[in-house]
């Protein structure tokens, strides 16, 4: 394994983390809601995709959009029913609530799908490696980089250029003034929340191959999502993006060069960064 391959795998991993966590960047970073249950939406997407591919025989690429849709619908329903009542509550309440959701999702998926790891049947075209200038590049990881790269650009453009993007930024900056200007703030939040959940579900479906998919997914990767958001800060989408790339490359390189230390490196770096810059590397303030 060469340095370039590690870098490539790290970038793919980082991109994946970004897609998984960017919904959380909005709820946690911008709306200041501590949502520890974000991984549950990713898991939901992953399982929907796995059922469609493995049991219904759908092609993998056709099942991906459905994973997005399923998670987005679940997210929208939960937001309307539960989450929106808790935006103004204390962080302790939000933590309790979302931990409760995680526990429920873990046990429910365990009950329905069993506790063993789920494997996705990938199409032939996505398996194996291609050789590019002497660097072995996994096809699946290449696809992830392409899809996630396009998504990132799309998100950045949506936030910066479209009317919805400016509405969202206004609603986040000052909900009162925004609603005074006629922006339907709850609706904007609900749509954003649902979209973020959808992206998480999409990421969950993509990540089944790389991160592994089992009922404990939301607990295992919770800390990674949180790191992306807290380290990346919340001023823009680039902060979390760079943070997830750093995290991805750091994690892959750490596991390769210092396999014995395991996740130790990542946690240490996170704590050091949070002590050094409590609002994240690229952030202004996480809590207003």
């Amino acid at each position: 394994m060469t340095l370039l391959t590690i870098l490539f795998d790290g970038v793919a991993y980082g991109m994946l983390l970004f897609v998984l966590a960017c919904g959380l960047a909005v709820t946690l970073g911008l709306m200041n809601f501590v949502n520890l249950a974000h991984g549950a939406f990713a898991m939901a997407g992953g399982y929907v995709c796995a059922v469609l591919v493995n049991q219904a025989g759908w092609p993998f690429l056709a099942a991906l959009p459905l994973a997005f849709l399923a998670s987005a619908v679940i997210g929208a329903v939960l937001e309307r029913l539960l989450y929106r009542h808790l935006y103004a509550r204390s962080h302790l309440d939000q933590v309790l609530f979302s931990v409760g959701l995680v526990f429920m999702s873990v046990a429910a998926v365990d009950y329905i799908m069993g506790s063993s790891r789920v494997f996705m049947q990938l199409p032939e075209a996505l398996q194996g490696q291609i050789d590019l200038f002497g660097v072995g590049i996994g096809r699946y990881r290449l696809m992830i980089i392409v899809i996630c790269g396009l998504l990132t650009v799309g998100l950045q453009l949506t936030l910066a250029k479209t009317r919805f993007g400016s509405r969202l930024r206004a609603a986040v900056d000052d909900p009162r003034v925004a609603s005074g200007l006629g922006i339907n703030v709850p609706q904007v939040f609900a749509l954003t929340f649902a979209f973020g959940c959808g992206l998480a579900g999409f990421g969950g479906a993509l990540s089944a191959e790389i991160l592994g998919l089992d009922p404990y997914f939301p607990l295992k990767f919770m800390i990674y999502f949180l790191i992306v958001v807290t380290v990346g800060g919340s001023s823009s989408i680039t902060g979390p993006f760079l943070a997830s790339l750093l995290l991805g490359i750091g994690d892959v390189a750490g596991k390769y060069y210092l396999p014995k230390l395991g996740p130790f490196v990542i946690y240490t770096i996170m704590i050091v960064i949070l002590i050094w810059r409590p609002n994240g590397l690229f952030g202004r303030t996480a809590a207003r």
């Binding site: 501590v34 962080h91 946690y267 996170m270 704590i271 996480a286």
Partner: peptide
């Protein structure tokens, strides 16, 4: 703030778990 505290306390516990495993 609260959020950093949550992360740091969680991080320390995970760190110790990783150390104990190591």
């Amino acid at each position: 703030v609260d959020l950093t505290r949550l992360m740091v306390t969680l991080g320390i516990a995970l760190l110790l778990e990783a150390l104990a495993e190591r």
